[in-house]
Design a protein around this nucleic acid. Structure first.
Lengths: 384, 384
DNA sequence: CTGTTAGCGCCTTCAT
DNA sequence: ATGAAGGCGCTAACAG
């Protein structure tokens, strides 16, 4: 009786339960492993006859390429690490679109995505994340909109791993980043409102903790200043990038006697809140109130009136990040060429902004809800 | 002059730029690769002296374990595949919490998460996903709330890969799943409202395309029927699991002459919309309108009044899924023991539901907004 | 066009 | 307590 090992090594069909290897195919076809490899990868020269035999055997044994073997040979993992706050990924259009861009750029490559939570204790600083590369769990890293740059990105500068930050550009120039030009985008929105003749302009700010929110606010303020317009702090709402809070705050703001004729919300979700509030109050948009947002989320074109907003090229950021990382990985990360990109955000003018009315006098009595026919907003749900 | 290969194999320090291997450490310490391995993995016997030498050399050469090598040896990938609609993941508390549960269960294991989009053409059916296992890109798969069971989960039954569906339990019993008992949870909420003396109960439905939304609606209807209560179809709002649409529809519903005294929304986001609408209309909650939700999202305890709701053990589902998959993987997936779990959803009674008033007459004039002091809702923003 | 050799980095097995 | 041999599955490099 032959020993089991002999059986396993020399039987013509793979042992039941064990997936077939190239070696199995080699034995079955009487060819060598190399010919099998070449045939399956369509690389190098293989006779048509051999190729057919290999294909047939592969089908018969239900062969699948084992990537662990290939990866060891090629010293790569085929994994691209995405590092993002889980609580952020989940819940915002922004992160979703960036990831979507990354995914789309990965189609056709044999790269897959590994996901890590920057809020977890295991991945909350650069050193820990770099381990993923050192230990060959991933080939490169894309950090999406890190919240804390200090303990996170700073250390990356020294770690020599293929890495790029997307969104929330770090201050440290020794790290590559791809971001959107929040300042420019917000400026163009403010500029647009001013061009329309508005000079009483309100603002809905995003979370102070987020860099892009700050940039947008800064842009708003500077643009008004450049046009010698004063920012009325009573018209600046502190929002949180979400609809409800902006809605309630707007109710308050818009019911004031002295209210703005235009509002720039630093993201679309909040702009929707302003829009809802205006509808409740009975202010027609854009006739009595112009509203501009930021992001160009799906809902922006699904409301009535459609939202004037600033489009961020989120997916493009994701794609560019992949291209950059792939390039670094391909070059073995030898040339440490950094990139610092700020993609332009484009103003999209739709229906929610209009010329300021000459007649709009702030001295006019602010309309309370009681002046509005109830049907006005109850029936106005078509735009949802 | 010695050939380069000799240099590389026999120099005492690893070639510059190439990460150190155990072989490097072996040469540097004069020990064998095995001793290095044992020392670094604290497995088997190693003398204290040797261990120290190894540790020192590892530190000196900045050695990191190469997982590709280990994985090939152990025929595993250390990757757990998570398959979810990207557009879904992104955007809902639900997906986020499940993933969070998965993440937490993975801490301490050396498993990482690979993420795949079930909406992508590459992973939109069972066969394609199973390839990930066959090709050894992942060791197991967790499918989160697949939208389409037909082309997706059905095929899984035959594919013999470690797989479990979390949320959106498939009809096919040959697939393992872990889900929450939507029917039971929704029933208890409806029961609760009935117990409080309500008999005019409205409902905000979720998307018809989602299984859990259907289950909750079914439970609502059956529970009312069991108590011989008629469901007034005018009080059933077709929502989409999001706040705004529910808000606007509720404005309409609650301003009717004949309106319900209680509303059960099939998720919390929509319950918030109902709450906002009630506030606008001027109905006090819970005195004039009881509201119950489903999910127990963070906001449920951050509004005024706090929301009565049904808590889904989302994180626990994620954790259980991991435990199950790990077990399968550990056993080499030999015993194909299926699990079909429905975790109970717990009713959490808070402030948004109360005893039905005897005096609440539906014949009473529905209050229009014009009857409400404006300050009523403008100042009522504290609960946000 | 095909095969042989060798090695990726690790760990299991068996020997010492 | 340590080492030697060998193999996981694949492919580059070189021979034929």
């Amino acid at each position: 009786m032959l020993p089991v090992t002999y059986m396993m090594k020399h039987s013509h069909s793979p042992h039941e339960g064990r997936p077939a290897t190239m070696e199995d195919l080699a034995r079955a076809t009487g060819l060598s492993k190399m010919t099998i490899s070449r045939a399956l990868n369509t690389s190098g020269y293989v006779s048509e006859q051999s190729r057919k035999k290999v294909i047939a055997a592969a089908r018969q044994f239900n062969y699948r390429l084992n990537y662990i073997g290939r990866n060891l040979n090629q010293n790569r993992t085929g994994m691209l690490g995405i590092i993002t706050p889980l609580e952020g990924l989940i819940g915002t259009y922004y992160f979703g679109q960036i990831v979507k861009g990354i995914q789309s750029a990965l189609i056709g490559t044999d790269y897959h995505i590994a996901h890590y939570d920057s809020l977890s204790a295991d991945f909350n600083d650069g050193e820990k994340c770099a381990q993923l590369c050192y230990q060959k769990r991933v080939d490169g890293l894309i950090v999406i909109a890190p919240k804390r740059h200090d303990c996170f990105v700073k250390t990356f500068a020294e770690l020599k791993v293929p890495l790029v930050v997307v969104g929330g550009a770090p201050r440290d120039p020794r790290t590559s980043f791809i971001d959107v030009d929040n300042f420019g985008g917000a400026s163009s929105a403010a500029e647009h409102l001013i061009d329309l003749g508005h000079y009483k302009i309100g603002f809905v700010a995003g979370p102070k903790t987020l860099h892009d929110a700050c940039e947008r606010e800064m842009a708003f303020r500077k643009t008004l200043a450049r046009h010698s317009l004063r920012v009325n702090e009573k018209w600046v709402i502190q929002g949180s990038y979400e609809t409800r809070k902006a809605f309630h705050a707007s109710l308050h703001l818009l019911s004031q006697r002295d209210r703005p004729t235009a509002i720039f919300a630093s993201n679309d979700l909040m702009a929707l809140g302003v829009l809802d509030a205006a509808r409740i109050i009975g202010l027609s948009v854009p006739e009595e109130l112009s509203i501009a947002g930021f992001d160009d989320i799906d809902a922006a074109t699904n409301v009535q009136p459609q939202l004037t907003t600033v489009r961020q090229p989120m997916q493009r950021m994701g794609r560019k990040a992949v291209e950059y990382i792939m390039e670094l990985v391909a070059k073995g990360n030898q040339e440490r060429h950094l990139i610092h990109q700020k993609l332009t955000a484009q103003l999209i003018i739709r229906e929610s902004t209009a010329q300021a009315r000459k007649t709009t006098q702030t001295t006019g009595q602010a309309r309370g809800v009681d002046k509005v026919p109830f049907s006005h907003f109850v029936t106005g749900t078509s735009g949802l």
